[in-house]
């Protein structure tokens, strides 16, 4: 009963508060509005779960998830090391670096570029996570196979984006470099590579999400008894949904924090780009 009233109050005053807040100009209002919205969703979730007695095998309340996060901290830590530090991070780095290198190589030959680019867009339309069982067969159950999946998933987005970035230099600027008598590698280092950086960062950010997905999904096809994907699939089967949600919260945190970190680095490295100038 009281839960219903609380929900009703939230449904009336929440949107009212949002509407008032979103009228405000300036920095604070812009940050506060989405935060208030998020808080409202959380509050509604908590009220519904506790007030109407939703069984926790369907949907645990946010408070239960927080508690589970605290009590299972050591398990979460081990899973984080296995999945993120051992599989996702190296895979992401190797795949992105290989994609960038391949782009630099392809840039030398228009013939190869015309042959490989359609292939790249073909692969980007394919459900690449499907190679996970094959990689598990080749590289075994441990983190190596997960890293391999991540490498394959991150290679082509980087290749396609980096190539577009290298192409993005205008003819005028290249002519200027030529009139300076700059050599090929000098033009590359001083003009075309810096110019490609925004594209490279786009791919890096895209890849960070892809890598996390690849790392976790690959674990559904067989792992040692540790890792985020392993934990999610086994704890779901044991109906310990609070642990599963704790893993999800961690995955969400890792995903958004790495995205934010990359965005910050991008800002620092490509501060000269028009999109960052006021």
């Amino acid at each position: 009963m009281s839960a219903g009233v609380a929900l009703l109050l939230l449904a009336i005053f929440g949107p009212l508060g949002l509407a008032l807040l979103s009228r405000g100009e300036g920095w604070a209002a812009r940050v506060a509005t989405p935060l208030l919205f998020g808080a409202m969703v959380l509050a509604a979730w908590q009220i519904v779960c506790v007030g109407f007695g939703v069984p926790s095998i369907l949907l645990p309340a946010p408070s239960q998830i927080v508690v589970a996060f605290g009590t299972h901290l050591s398990t979460l830590g081990v899973d984080f090391v296995q999945t993120v530090l051992r599989a996702v991070l190296p895979g992401w780095a190797i795949g992105s670096a290989a994609g960038l290198l391949a782009a630099l190589l392809l840039d030398r030959s228009a013939f190869l570029r015309r042959g490989v680019l359609p292939l790249g867009s073909l692969v980007s339309a394919m459900p690449v996570v499907g190679i996970a069982p094959i990689m598990v067969m080749w590289f075994g159950f441990d983190w190596q196979s997960k890293a391999a999946v991540v490498v394959v998933m991150t290679f082509f987005p980087m290749l396609v984006n980096a190539l577009a970035g290298l192409e993005s230099t205008g003819a005028m600027e290249r002519d200027l470099m030529r009139s300076y008598g700059a050599r090929d590698w000098q033009t590359m280092l001083k003009l075309r590579l810096p110019n490609a950086l925004p594209f490279v960062f786009t791919a890096l950010k895209l890849n960070s999400t892809l890598a996390l997905i690849g790392g976790i999904v690959a674990e559904f096809f067989g792992t040692p008894i540790v890792g985020m994907g392993f934990r999610i699939s086994t704890e779901v089967a044991r109906m310990n949904l609070d642990v599963v949600w704790a893993e999800i919260v961690m995955a969400a945190l890792v995903g958004s924090l790495s995205f934010a970190a990359l965005a910050l680095i991008e800002r620092a490295v490509t501060f000269w780009h028009p999109s960052f100038r006021e």
């Binding site: 949002l18 509407a19 949907l59 997905i213 976790i216 985020m228 779901v236 995955a251 995903g255």
Partner: peptide
């Protein structure tokens, strides 16, 4: 609607940094 713009856009973008595919099993079971 300005209110929707201000409150939703951030969460729509954030929703994609969450590896949703990873939680697919839970969604199916639940």
């Amino acid at each position: 609607v300005r209110t929707l713009d201000r409150s939703l856009m951030l969460w729509i973008i954030a929703s994609q940094t969450v590896p949703i595919l990873a939680i697919a099993p839970m969604v199916v079971v639940v």
